[in-house]
Design a protein around this nucleic acid. Sequence first.
DNA 1: TCGCATAAATACCTTTTGGTATATTTGTTT
DNA 2: AAACAAATATACCAAAAGGTATTTATGCGA
Lengths: 201, 201
Amino acid sequence: MDRSLSKAERTRKFIIESTAEIFNKKGYAGTSMSDLTEATGLTKGSIYGNFENKEEVALAVFDYNSEKVKNLISEQISRAASYHDKLMVYAKVYKNVTKGFITQGGCPILNTAIEADDTHNLLKDRAAKAVIKWKKSITDLIEGGVAAGEFKQDIEIPRTALSIIALIEGAVMISRVTNDLGAMDKILKTVEAVIDELKVA
Amino acid sequence: MDRSLSKAERTRKFIIESTAEIFNKKGYAGTSMSDLTEATGLTKGSIYGNFENKEEVALAVFDYNSEKVKNLISEQISRAASYHDKLMVYAKVYKNVTKGFITQGGCPILNTAIEADDTHNLLKDRAAKAVIKWKKSITDLIEGGVAAGEFKQDIEIPRTALSIIALIEGAVMISRVTNDLGAMDKILKTVEAVIDELKVA
DNA sequence: TCGCATAAATACCTTTTGGTATATTTGTTT
DNA sequence: AAACAAATATACCAAAAGGTATTTATGCGA
């Protein structure tokens, strides 16, 4: 038991962790309070003692889920030597992680973006911010590679960054809905080709 | 009034058309029967007289929505002269249609795939079939272009087809969640680059 | 270990949900 | 225009939704 956290903080964390997968699979509208009590073994009173309402749980869960993906990726990026290899982490991570990822409901950013874009502004904003941060991190890596002389000078950086994200998220959608991991592999090959294309001749 | 359709058929069509946008925006779980009565001006009794349940309305609406997108595209494809131009229709259509498209809730295939992949097998299957059909139509166009000597011989056809779909669907997600039509334009430029790349040198 | 604050469980509430049986209206055919 | 079928509206369920006030149990510092 983590004594650095108060009881309330531990319970909050416990609720978030035990419902993270449910929200990611069923979405905000599709997840009910009884789903949460069932998954946690807690009562409604306890959940409402730690969160104001269902919305607040969903927001905390989104933060938790997207943070988890982010940490996994940035840890690997820090280990890669070249800018090329750092960018390749995206392709590699999604190739390896996909199986587990896929059983946990897919990409939380994609899921939340699609559900919330016409229905829930707070969740939409979080998903939008996550996409923008992701774009910036790719942009930074490309700029780093250009400055280091590793990449060409005339790259259309925003277009490249956005295209990589689109390819990956599109790949998650396609491979999950068609139950076809091969589709993921093929599309990630295109991501790799896009990244290879950046290198100086 | 269309006399070729029975009253029941007309009402069915009316219900589908008036709820198509709601289902696309709010999703299956997020759309309630009272949403449907409100949008149609009909009572629950009338809707249940024409459909077995909410699920059957949702399935019919998905067919209607995806058919609508398909018709728009295939009509333009039939008008394009070269295989290159036929493929380019995807980029063009999404560039032009996006504004209207975007206000109507985005791509129904994407929305349904993401919501249903872990929650609703019937809807998931329809979305999967739509993706597979889309892939096949791109594949056929590339093969046609190869046979006609318009495209290179060594194209990785399935990978190219899947990558085009992934780029487009990823672009819809990104541009909608960030309210940034420029992102759509940039990613579609990559789609165009992918298609241009197919041509014989 | 006592006492208090904190956390969790119980019991309850209102509204909405998806759905149905029945009554009424509407179209259509003769 | 009558008669009958087809379509729609009314009025009603039971269950589940999100949420709250209150009671009970737990943890923790003095």
